[in-house]
Amino acid sequence: MVDTPSASRNVPIAGVIGWPIAHSRSPRLHGHWLQRYGITGHYVPLPVMPEHLAEVLRAMPRMGFVGANVTIPHKESVLALADVVTDRAALIGAANTLIFRPDGKIHADNTDGYGFIANIRQHAPDWIPGLGPAAVIGAGGAARAVVASLLESGVPELRITNRTRIRAEQIKAEFGAKVVVYDWAQAGNMLEGAVTVVNATSMGMEGKPPLRVPLDALASGTLATDLVYTPLMTSFLQEAQARGCKIVDGLGMLLHQATPGFERWFGHRPEVDDELRRAVLA
């Protein structure tokens, strides 16, 4: 556990729970905001093994914690441990933001979809999701949040593909008739006529295999965005840009998904701007 000698009811503490957690940029992100706004509070990394998750969560409110972010591998597990689960977290099947209420109950939410849309709105303000189909590559936990947010934003059709087709089929079963599943071998065809294209896999990330989806069908003017942000300019975004697409990198999703939690925990709505990007990338 974390040493919290200064913890008191007047000094809110939050953190990020994961295993492992050393790679997380969340402490740098929230630490920047705390310093920038002159807020007395703490945000700490919390390495928690899966078998200790329930015990740790129950202890945290008694230690002065007001909430936490949740990352791999705990985002699904926390739903069963929370007392209150928002509709969107239940629909996505994962939570990334916890609020410890004064009565001791744990409130679980998912702000990934919010962060995804807010990032696009900030960097592509002329994006109109209803103009045509969206195409999502991948069907993991992050993809589920993207699918939910795109459908809520008004896309008329959502095309999805995944190397393991059954995961894409599960998303169609849960999210309805607007979702159309494509075989992985047909992923390139899925992009034809798409107004919005999203890489929601880890392919293209540093240390991961490249994204090998043909992009020939990408039309100039299409919005292309990647959830990967290491590197910021993935090969997918580079090729999309070369084809005349409007591109949005994945870092902003990380930054924007953090704002609702920070506001609830520390009482101030933080700003996502270039200064924050530089701080998190430093």
Rank of each mutant, 00 (worst) to 15 (best):
I171A: 01
E157C: 01
G221N: 13
N189F: 15
P5F: 10
H256I: 00
G221A: 11
A194H: 14
E263A: 15
G15F: 02
I128T: 10
E192M: 13
E263G: 14
T230S: 15
N96T: 03
P20W: 08
P5S: 02
G132I: 10
A90R: 09
A82C: 05
A219S: 08
G244E: 05
L53Q: 12
G93P: 07
T4K: 03
N69Q: 03
A7H: 04
S26W: 09
A108E: 05
V228C: 13
F100W: 00
A90E: 09
V197Y: 14
P50M: 05
I106N: 11
A185R: 13
I99Y: 03
S149K: 11
A54F: 01
M63E: 00
A145L: 00
P214H: 14
R212G: 12
G204E: 08
A242E: 07
R101P: 12
F236P: 01
R278V: 12
T97K: 09
P231M: 02
A108P: 05
V197M: 15
G261P: 08
G188W: 02
P50V: 02
M60Y: 04
P5D: 04
I17E: 09
A282E: 15
A89D: 10
E55G: 14
G130R: 15
L251M: 11
R88F: 07
F100K: 03
V248F: 12
P50R: 07
L34R: 02
P47V: 00
V180L: 12
G130K: 15
V195T: 10
P47T: 02
V44N: 04
Q238D: 13
P20K: 04
H23P: 06
A54K: 08
F65I: 03
S8G: 01
V56G: 14
W184R: 05
L53G: 14
T111P: 06
P20H: 08
L255M: 13
D226F: 02
V2H: 14
C245E: 01
A240C: 09
K105N: 10
P12Y: 08
E76A: 10
L276S: 01
M63A: 01
G154E: 06
D126T: 11
V85G: 11
